[in-house]
Design a protein around this nucleic acid. Sequence first.
DNA 1: GAAATTTATGCACTCAGTGCAATATATATT
DNA 2: AATATATATTGCACTGAGTGCATAAATTTC
Lengths: 198, 198
Amino acid sequence: MTVMGDDEGVRERKRRETRQRIVDAGLKLFGRHGYEATTLDAIAAEAGISRRTFFHYFKSKDEILISMQAGLGEQLSAALRAQPAHRPPLDAMRAALLALVAPYSPESLLAIDRLMHSSETVQARKQASYIRDEAMVFAALREHWPDEPEPQMRLLASFAIAAVRLSLDTLSREEGRRPLGTLLEESFEALEALARHR
Amino acid sequence: MTVMGDDEGVRERKRRETRQRIVDAGLKLFGRHGYEATTLDAIAAEAGISRRTFFHYFKSKDEILISMQAGLGEQLSAALRAQPAHRPPLDAMRAALLALVAPYSPESLLAIDRLMHSSETVQARKQASYIRDEAMVFAALREHWPDEPEPQMRLLASFAIAAVRLSLDTLSREEGRRPLGTLLEESFEALEALARHR
DNA sequence: GAAATTTATGCACTCAGTGCAATATATATT
DNA sequence: AATATATATTGCACTGAGTGCATAAATTTC
């Protein structure tokens, strides 16, 4: 007998839970022994699944970490679409980024950042995923501001992702002294100054 | 008896030649069967060395391709240092990039670009190497223009690499219709327009 | 409750990459 | 020219990531 319409079947719930157990196991072991030294066997054991099953949830070991920062593209695109279309895209981007970033705590961002730096392949994959984010943001820009010239929108998308990347870098370099929002603002000011200063 | 001071010993010459044979073998086989389907055994055989020896020349399979685009950071840094220090950095960057890019033919750039797209790992490594280039360019900027604010120089380095990346993308998308120099100019104009337009 | 789908697992396999020890080749020394 | 030393090449055995396939277990559908 089904008691309440939770609209999520047992299958979906279990799948979500297992996925989470894998992520937890991965983060725990990566944190303890480092990324490279942690084998998939160990992660599978810790998560209570077989090694083979791991690959039904993630295509590769690094995906565990990449999944942590996945969603930047989608989220930023969504935040952009929430902006009024009559605003200049650069201003809209600034607002969207600030809104997006507000909920994150520096500590959690720093912790993830540290793990990302522990392996070359992870580092590489992270950059690649930024490129995907960039493409997604570009698509959103084109859709929302179809009259703006394409090269400018490509550059804006690229700048937005670079701003996030540089701000996270600086956050990490400064060990969280200044909040991410401030660092993002700094990037926008740098952009204006750079273009004006000639 | 040594006949002429070629200043390159047999050892160095052989090493250079072997490295080149590996690259040639790799490109040939990647082009024929694709990146993933080409094993290191096949490359080693084609280059006339043992599989183990391959790893004395490259850390990994993807390095063969990455080595193709390596040097962007160094070259751009050098081109920057050749610019007069009283010029505004953005103008200097534009000149440096245009000078740097002039000698390359669209065909060779397109061919390499196609190979880079054939594998996810290669793609990822390529992006990672862009990040290293960016860091190198930033260092050169700071050295040459120590009085400019740091965030602006970080952003400029990031913009320069993004401009190269976007221009190569467009070159590939347009199948070489417009030369790389033109596309780079377009990026610089987009930057100005983007920052002004508010 | 039976049939159809989806998920979990074991097994055998390929291939990238590493450590180590032995051999071959190039350079330096006398 | 012979020898010592440094560097390059190779084979071998190993670890670990990732895939294909076939089978068993669980979930959903009817």
